[in-house]
Every structure is written in structure tokens, then in C-alpha cells.
Amino acid sequence: MTLSHDVAGDGPVLVLLHSGVCDRRMWDAQWPALADAGYRLVRCDFRGFGGTPAPDGPYSDADDVLALLDSLGIGQAALVAASSGGRVALEIAARRPERVTALALLCSALPGHAPTDELRAFGQREDALIEAGDIAGAVELNLDTWLGPDADLATREAVRGMQRHAFDVQLAAPEEFGPVRAEFELSAIQAPCLAVSGAHDVTDFRQIAGELPELLADARHVELPWAGHLPGLERPAAVTELLVGFLDTVLQKV
């Protein structure tokens, strides 16, 4: 099964990995700007999101992404990832360090992270709403939790549509399959990493971004004082500028 995806542009390859609230459309604002900046872009939908069907058996998001890159003839790429997409990016970079040229992680999840009470309470509330059949309520809970104060009505509507579609696809699946967890060490990652956090985000993701410079060989942390959990949607131009500045430098385009 090949992940639903888009390809555009020419130059060093960037692979854009979406959050668990969204799908590959979350990169719409960055897509033309990064292509114009001189990059070849790939963005994909994980299983159960966007245009990719829900899983029909055990699977690995990391293996799915690597298989997609193989099918496109891409040997190396920089990974730009948001939230749970960041966990996938870290797994790829740890298991196949020779294939990853850089990591730009926006409010990333972390393999093995023990959730705080705050994050557990969110999960319990979401589960309760879904079990009660209040899917619209679960969508609104996600919007209120993950979008920061700079998210405008159009952004909220876009995220609302992506999250609702993900719930509809995943809940309609005849059986639920979780991802297969591989064993790997983050210390194997050699690619330079930019770890971005948002001052209005849930505590867990601020902690993770702050910890990554201690866990990786070459990482730096930047906190955006205006951002929630999805800064690329909240202030697209500012995040594009941050990404291009980092990537141009570490990929030696300047």
C-alpha cells in the first residue's frame, strides 16, 4: 500500500509529515513557498488520514514513509514534521540515519514519552466523547486544545475538516490496528535538528522540545512565544521563514 502523497519542486528533498490532528493539507501554506525556495517536496498522508485508507493490519508509519521514498527513488531527505509526525521522523532518523539530512520538528512527540496528567486528561476526555458518539464534540476539543490564540477562523475550519475526516475514516474501519513499535536508540541520530515549541502548547510538547538538545548529537531548541501546538497553521509565513533559514544553512544552500 502506497501512502497518498504529492511531489513538487526541484532541489534537496524535504519530506513533510503531518500531525495527528491534520493530514498532508496542513502544509498547504508552506508548499509553494518551500518549492520556490529551491526544494523538492514530498508530503504524504499516514494510514487513516487524508487520502490514505485506515490500516487493515499491523503497520509502521516509519516503514510506510521509507517505502514511499524508495518508490520515488529518493535516497536522502530532510524531514519536516509536526507533532506525532515528529515521532515518525525521529524513528526514521534513528533507524536509518544515513537517509536523513536534517530534522525540523514542530512541537514534536517523542518515542517513549510518559504523558503528563494534562495530556492524559485530554485523551480521556476525547475517548469519552467518541464513546458517547459525540464526534463533533471530540473535534472541537481537539481544536480548543491544539490551536493557539493566533489561529483565525479559516485555520480553525481547515483543522476542523481534517480532524473530522480522520475520525470518520478511522471509526468506519472494521477493525482497529495500532502501529508496530520498533526498537531504536535516539543517540543514533546524526542529522542536525531544529526543535520548535510553542509557549501556548500542552506542557508535554514544550518539555520534549527542550529535552531534544540533550538527547541528540546536534539539536537546538527554539520556543515561539505566540504559538500553540500547530504553529505552521497559526502563523504560516513566520514558520516558513524559520524553516527556510534553518534548512538553507544546514543543507548548505547559502
Rank of each mutant, 00 (worst) to 15 (best):
Y59L: 11
D28I: 01
A151Q: 01
D70Y: 12
A217I: 00
S71D: 09
D23P: 00
L171P: 08
L14R: 10
W226I: 01
A199R: 13
V254M: 02
V13G: 03
D152N: 05
V7F: 15
P174S: 07
G133N: 02
I135C: 14
A109H: 04
S84M: 14
L216Q: 07
A219E: 14
E176S: 13
L16M: 11
L79F: 08
A128F: 05
G38V: 01
L247R: 13
A166Q: 11
L105H: 02
Q30D: 09
G178R: 15
V15R: 06
L233E: 00
R220K: 14
V42E: 06
M162Y: 06
L119E: 06
E118I: 01
V196W: 12
A195G: 11
D61F: 13
C193F: 14
G57Y: 02
S19I: 01
S19T: 02
G11R: 10
L41K: 09
G38Q: 12
L215Y: 14
P53V: 07
P174H: 11
I189P: 04
D64N: 03
P97V: 12
V7Y: 12
A195Y: 15
V7P: 04
A154V: 01
D56R: 13
A227G: 06
P174V: 10
T145K: 03
G75W: 10
P55Y: 11
G148Y: 13
G75N: 02
A77S: 02
T116F: 04
A237V: 09
A238Q: 01
A217N: 00
D23V: 04
R43T: 03
F246H: 12
S83M: 11
G48M: 11
A33T: 14
P225L: 12
R206K: 08
D117S: 06
L34C: 05
L216V: 08
A138K: 13
I135M: 06
R95M: 07
P97T: 14
A35S: 08
V15N: 04
D152Q: 01
P55F: 13
P97M: 14
G228F: 05
L66A: 07
G38I: 07
D23Y: 10
L230C: 07
V88A: 12
G50D: 10
A62T: 02
P12I: 10
V159I: 08
G148A: 15
L215G: 13
H229Q: 11
G232W: 08
L3V: 01
G245A: 05
Q76N: 05
L41Y: 06
E98C: 00
D6Q: 11
V13E: 08
S19N: 04
L247E: 08
R25S: 02
E131S: 14
P32I: 05
T145G: 07
E176H: 15
F46P: 00
A62I: 05
